[in-house]
Design a protein around this nucleic acid. Sequence first.
DNA 1: AATATATACATAATATTATTATGCATAATA
DNA 2: TATTATGCATAATAATATTATGTATATATT
Lengths: 112, 112
Amino acid sequence: MKNSSLYKGSLTTIILKLLNEHDKMYGYQITQRAEEITQGELIITEGALYPCLHKLKAKGFVDVEVLMIGNRKRKYYKLTEEGTRETVKKLAELEDYITIMRALVNPKFRPE
Amino acid sequence: MKNSSLYKGSLTTIILKLLNEHDKMYGYQITQRAEEITQGELIITEGALYPCLHKLKAKGFVDVEVLMIGNRKRKYYKLTEEGTRETVKKLAELEDYITIMRALVNPKFRPE
DNA sequence: AATATATACATAATATTATTATGCATAATA
DNA sequence: TATTATGCATAATAATATTATGTATATATT
């Protein structure tokens, strides 16, 4: 997603955070919301999105609810309690990552 | 490196930046310097390091010089001009990445 | 009415990136 | 003398994502 390898490994964190502030979301909605927030910068591909959602389900981090909208199905994902804890953990990891990368990249942020 | 998938995709950026401020470095030295700067947080494994250095060489981003230290060889890597341009590019990508992740994770940093 | 685009899910083949394990060898330290 | 540190390298495997493809309904455009 984006022509930078840096996004590799951050999709789960992104999805968890979006779910965390929307109560429940379906796959397509997640891609649209991510694009919206980043002003078109972050395109989540389906080949990455759906396997990731299925894995979150398998780990018990989300519950799934299928709704029919007209003749079309939507699969809504909602964080479980464990999923909420995982989100907190992932966000803390992101903070750590940014702190460390900042130190590596900018000598000003390095420890004495 | 570290128990977080977020680092996936950032090794090349890290190495380029370290080379950028050291004139020339050898592989083992890179791992030690990274560990030093991050106070032991960032462990670069050899299985990731050497293939990455070889790829930088193949792309013309570094020149290699083999020196014998006693009976032991060291392969020094030094940025080429193209490698320096690549470093600037990668650092800009890192800034963009951090900006976007911040927006995703913290509503305060989202565009209106 | 026909066609294109958007919505909505899913998976297979492939590529990228890294971990873990292994191998070889010299130098320093306990 | 045995362990740890230094120094390079690669193979097997795992994790993560891209690209391509498939299926289908809904909406907008010509």
